[in-house]
Simulated assay, not measured.
Amino acid sequence: MTTPDNSSCDVWRPHVTVACVVTDRDRYLMVEEEVNGCVAYNQPAGHLDDLESLQQAAVRETREETGWTVSLTHLIGVHQWRSKEHGQVIVRFSFAAKPLSHDPQQPLDAGIRRALWLTRAEIAALGDRLRSPMVLMSIDEWLAGQRLPLSVVTSLMPGSDAS
Results as ranks from 00 to 15, higher is better:
Ile76Arg: 00
Gln105Pro: 02
Val21Trp: 00
Trp117Leu: 01
Lys84Ala: 12
Val39Ile: 15
Thr17Met: 15
Glu33Met: 11
Val16Pro: 03
Arg129His: 13
Glu52Tyr: 09
Gln80Ala: 14
Pro99Arg: 06
Leu100Cys: 03
Pro104Ile: 09
Asp24Pro: 00
Ser7Ala: 05
Pro99Asp: 08
Glu85Ala: 13
His102Asn: 07
Val22Ile: 12
Ala40Val: 10
Ser94Asn: 13
Val11Ala: 11
Val59Cys: 06
Pro44Thr: 06
Thr62Arg: 03
Val39Cys: 05
Phe95Glu: 01
Val35Glu: 14
Glu64Ser: 03
His15Asn: 11
Ala97Val: 09
Asp128Arg: 11
Ile112Asp: 02
Leu108Asn: 00
His74Pro: 06
Gly87Asp: 11
Ala97Phe: 07
Val70Asp: 01
Gln106Pro: 03
Arg92Phe: 02
Thr66Ala: 08
Ser94Gln: 09
Gln106Lys: 13
Arg82Cys: 11
Cys20Gln: 04
Leu72Met: 06
Glu61His: 12
Val35Ser: 10
Cys38His: 12
His79Pro: 00
Gly67His: 02
Thr23Gly: 00
Ser71Thr: 13
Ile123Asp: 03
Leu118Val: 00
Val35Met: 14
Asp103Ser: 10
Arg114Gln: 13
Cys20Thr: 15
Leu51Gln: 14
Asp109Ala: 08
Ser83His: 09
Thr66Ser: 05
Tyr28Phe: 15
Leu116Pro: 04
Trp68Phe: 14
Arg114Val: 02
Asp10Ala: 06
Val22Asp: 02
Thr17Ser: 14
Trp12His: 07
Asp10Val: 02
Ala124Phe: 04
Arg25Trp: 03
Ala125Tyr: 09
Asp50Ala: 15
Arg13Phe: 07
Asp10Trp: 04
Ser94Ala: 15
Ala58Val: 14
Ile90Trp: 15
Gly127Glu: 15
Gly37Ala: 08
Arg114Phe: 01
His47Pro: 08
Asn36Ser: 12
Arg82His: 11
Gly37Asn: 11
Arg120Lys: 13
Ala19His: 01
His15Asp: 12
Asp26Gly: 02
Val59His: 00
Tyr41Thr: 05
Thr69Leu: 13
Tyr41Ser: 02
Gln56Met: 14
Gly127Lys: 13
Gln56Glu: 15
Phe93Cys: 07
Gly46Trp: 07
Glu52His: 09
Pro14Ile: 03
Arg120Ile: 00
Tyr28Gln: 02
Ala121Glu: 15
Trp81Asn: 04
Tyr41Lys: 04
Val11Gly: 00
Ser101His: 08
Glu65His: 00
Val16Ser: 06
Trp68His: 13
Phe95Cys: 07
Lys98Gly: 07
Leu29Gly: 02
Val39Asn: 04
Leu108Met: 01
Asp109Ser: 10
Trp81Tyr: 14
Ala125Pro: 08
Met30Leu: 15
Ile76Ser: 08
Gln106Phe: 11
Thr73Val: 11
Val91Met: 07
Arg129Tyr: 02
Thr69Met: 09
Cys9Met: 05
Leu126Met: 12
Asn42Asp: 15
Trp68Gly: 02
